[in-house]
């Protein structure tokens, strides 16, 4: 084992006032790493034939998401609009003109206060959001793994001194750079967690503690596939051969850093989308524009979102996600 384990057992560092935070050497180092990571991400995705689009910020609906996060409401000429929690619906719509596309997308999710202590949640964050027409889950996973590997290699090459200054051991990435990531199913992950005494629900998302446990046990990033329906949004495609199982994946970083990527094949069939909306408690009427497009026909696709701040935290080895955002907003904390 070469990697340096992340050790959040001690008291996590607490956010400081914004002025102080912006002037902190740690923040400057994190931004230097972020800049290289974004450069490398764009380079890699353009090499994959993707076009970068700039995402919308508000709309009549947004990703209903999950895990109790709330979309922020905006009064838009008297209409109730939402700030984007993710631009997933727009990504799918964009496939009409762009076979392969990506955003570096800002997202706002009013996360429940209980997530403030995970070290992995911010209210404002960014995603490298990728969608690939006609792609299978395997292809999307391959692109996600390639993206992560490319970014890590680039950052190690360009700012080794910054990582050294932060105390991040480059040996932590040795296994990752081989590019061979393991895959386990959600059911296997649940079994492993239960075997270790963690009461993980088989019907739900891997919980924060469970995710960190699995992450800590690994020496390189790994995929978790086949999440159960009910744990994810209506747009993740249900496996036609295995009802109740989604053709989706997460990419979990090793060392306790947890989930970096969520992705899936998408539902493109109109009737299936409406039914899945009801299954997730959504009112189809509010998805009017999206359902019109779906009725006319949306290409099949697979895609994913990689959290920029989570990626940078993983690269820098910093303790908490707020340390790698220039303007951090922690769940439940009113901050400028």
């Amino acid at each position: 084992m070469h990697h340096t384990d992340h050790q959040p057992d001690g008291p996590a560092p607490r956010p400081v006032p914004l002025g102080e935070h912006l002037a902190a050497p740690t923040t400057r180092a994190a931004m230097a790493v972020q800049q290289e990571a974004l450069y490398a991400a764009r380079e890699y995705l353009r090499g994959q034939g993707c076009t970068e689009l700039l995402p919308p910020l508000v709309g009549p609906v947004t990703d209903p998401g999950g895990r109790g996060a709330k979309a922020l409401d905006v009064d838009y000429y008297g209409q109730p609009y939402k700030l984007m929690t993710s631009a997933i619906l727009y990504k799918q719509a964009s496939l009409r003109g762009f076979d392969r596309l990506f955003y570096i997308a800002p997202n706002v999710r009013v996360e429940p206060p209980e997530t403030a202590g995970t070290g992995r949640h911010l209210v404002e964050f960014h995603q490298i959001d990728v969608e690939l027409a006609g792609a299978s889950r395997d292809e999307a996973m391959e692109v996600a793994a390639g993206l992560l590997t490319h970014v890590v290699r680039h950052v190690l090459d360009t700012v080794p001194d910054v990582l050294a200054g932060l105390g991040r051991d480059p040996l932590a990435f040795t296994e990752l750079l081989t590019g061979k990531f393991d895959t386990c199913t959600h059911a296997e992950a649940v079994d492993r967690l239960r075997g270790g005494g963690h009461p993980q629900s088989a019907d739900a998302e891997i919980d924060w503690v469970g995710e960190e446990t699995l992450s800590r046990e690994a020496d390189r990033p790994f995929f978790v596939t086949d999440y159960p329906k009910g744990s994810r949004g209506f747009y993740d495609r249900e496996d036609p051969d295995r009802p109740g199982v989604l053709r989706n994946f997460d990419l979990i970083a090793h060392g306790g850093y947890g989930e970096l990527v969520s992705g899936s094949e998408r539902e493109a069939d109109y009737a299936t989308i409406v039914t899945r909306m009801r299954e997730s408690g959504e009112n189809p009427a509010k998805y009017d524009w999206y359902l019109k497009l779906a009725r006319e026909g949306i290409p099949t696709s697979a895609g994913f979102g990689m959290g920029v701040q989570r990626l940078v935290r993983f690269l820098t080895g910093l303790d908490a996600l707020w340390q790698v955002s220039a303007y951090p907003k922690l769940p439940g904390v009113v901050a400028p």
Binding site: G66, R67, G68, E114, S201, D203, A204, E205, D207, P228, K229, G230, S231, T275, R278, E279, S280, G281
Partner: peptide, 22 residues
């Protein structure tokens, strides 16, 4: 009244448990 089938009820309950674990 909302549209419900056995599968819609099952999934909505799971969705609630997943989203609001506490």
């Amino acid at each position: 009244p909302g549209t419900f089938t056995e599968e819609i009820v099952r999934q909505q309950v799971r969705f609630m448990r997943n989203n609001f674990p506490r």
